[in-house]
Amino acid sequence: MKKPIVVLAQSLVLAAFFAMPSFADDEEALKKDLTAVIALHGLPCGEVIAAKVLAENDYAASCKDGNKYRVYLNAAGRVVVEKQK
């Protein structure tokens, strides 16, 4: 393999390696944010263990206790938490 290609490949691997923790951090921050929001609405959850982006400022959250919620920002600027079946 030519040297430039090897260097490029190594760079990509390094970039991916350093980028992954960042994604993981974002994911954790989102889960924590959603956990707090659900709790602030007085709904049972425990802890958000998975979050899926549905749209901008619109998420589906799965809780440790099995509950699922849709958390989104409505047009009036209010955060709405809807229980999902």
Binding site: D33, L34, A36, V37, V71, G77, V79
Partner: peptide, 13 residues
């Protein structure tokens, strides 16, 4: 310490 949604929720309250 708190995320975007949490801040908005608190502001709502």
């Amino acid at each position: 310490a708190i995320g975007f949604f949490t801040k908005i929720t608190l502001k709502n309250q």
